[in-house]
């Protein structure tokens, strides 16, 4: 799918239909630095928001926007990593909800620390099963993670019945990290998010594992022939995805001060959307996490904007869908791959 850079520039130079030199440079900038137009789009949205409701853009707004964008960005990290290899992880909603609900029900009896360890371990196991199914048994990622989300949701519904009298207790620390805002504009969840983001962004570019993800997404057969142990990469990837989902689930339960077995389900499709808007190709091999973070911010600002404009839920959904199609189409157009 990706062409060698030299060939593509030489090709465009010779093609008469490219209208002007500036037009070509535009495309090149967007192709090489997708972050620039994304941040521009984000800025435009913020300006529109300020016009729609003057005075809304302030320190407090920044804090709440970041606070709700962070769990989405972490879930979108799962999608970004999976999509780089040509996969997808639809089980993040069920897995993240599982983490939130397990901690909510186990912390009174086991103490918060043990509860968190159990929850993260459970999520890692769900990811391990995903990874084994996809990597070893070559099950299509869409089907594997979809089936896993059903299994997890079903098991949690059964568990919920056993726990129905106990009620849910949200650990204070999670509430502090998930919903607290310090200095008026810095959400406490940044403590968790910044290290994760740095590790993923740097890890994708600078580590062998990161390059393996791109290699497998670009051409799995070539990657295998070059000596990559593809199944091991998949197992590690989906376990990582499960652990990231667990972190997002914890933050969301702290943010919403509740934990249910379907707490995060609503965020699954937006997490895919954030990765797509951020420029990661669902076919694999192209993308990165920095774009995804901006994508999550864009979706959060759009949601705020639609709320401010008092759009009915229906119109919100329609616009949401249209935005995803338009952004994805714009990417395909400028990056030239189909």
């Amino acid at each position: 799918m990706t062409r060698p850079a030299g060939a593509s520039t030489a090709g465009t130079a010779g093609v008469p239909r490219s209208p002007s030199a500036t037009g070509r440079n535009w495309r090149q900038v967007i192709r090489d630095q997708p972050l620039i137009p994304l941040i521009a789009l984000l800025a435009v949205l913020v300006v529109v928001l300020e016009f729609a409701s003057p005075g809304i853009v302030n320190a407090n707004w920044l804090g709440t926007t970041l606070r709700s964008a962070i769990p989405l960005a972490i879930l979108a990290a799962c999608q970004t990593l999976a999509m780089l290899t040509g996969g997808i992880d639809l089980s993040v909603g069920a897995v993240a909800s599982m983490a939130a609900y397990l901690i909510g029900t186990l912390s009174p009896s086991q103490g918060p620390l043990v509860a968190i360890v159990i929850a993260v371990a459970a999520c890692a196991i769900a990811g391990l099963v995903n990874g084994v199914g996809i990597g070893v048994f070559k099950v299509h990622p869409l089907i594997m993670t979809l089936g896993m989300s059903l299994v997890v949701l079903g098991l949690m519904s059964v568990y919920q019945l056993a726990m129905v009298q106990q009620g849910v207790h949200i650990v204070d620390a999670l509430r502090f990290v998930g919903s607290g805002i310090s200095f008026g504009f810095l959400p406490n969840s940044l403590i968790v998010f910044v290290p994760i983001a740095v590790i993923i962004v740097v890890g994708l570019r600078r580590t062998g594992y990161g390059r393996l993800l791109f290699a497998i997404g670009d051409n799995p057969i070539a990657a295998r022939l070059a000596g990559a142990r593809v199944w091991q990469v998949h197992v590690a990837l989906y376990m990582l995805s499960g652990i990231l989902a667990a972190i997002a689930g914890m933050l969301l339960s702290g943010l919403n001060n509740t934990a249910t077995v379907s707490l995060v389900e609503q965020q699954v499709l937006p997490s895919v959307a954030a990765a797509v808007i951020g420029g990661t190709s669902i076919m694999g091999g192209r993308g990165g996490y920095a774009g995804t973070i901006v994508g999550a911010l864009i979706l959060t600002v759009v949601t705020t904007l639609l709320n401010v404009l008092e759009m009915p839920e229906a119109v919100k959904q329609i616009l949401f869908g249209v935005i995803i199609v338009v952004v994805a189409a714009a990417y395909t157009r400028v990056s030239g791959d189909s």
Partner: peptide, 13 residues
């Protein structure tokens, strides 16, 4: 020319 899965995911909204 966007992958089917992305287009129809968006259109589902």
């Amino acid at each position: 020319k966007v992958p089917d899965i992305v287009v129809t995911l968006a259109m589902s909204f």
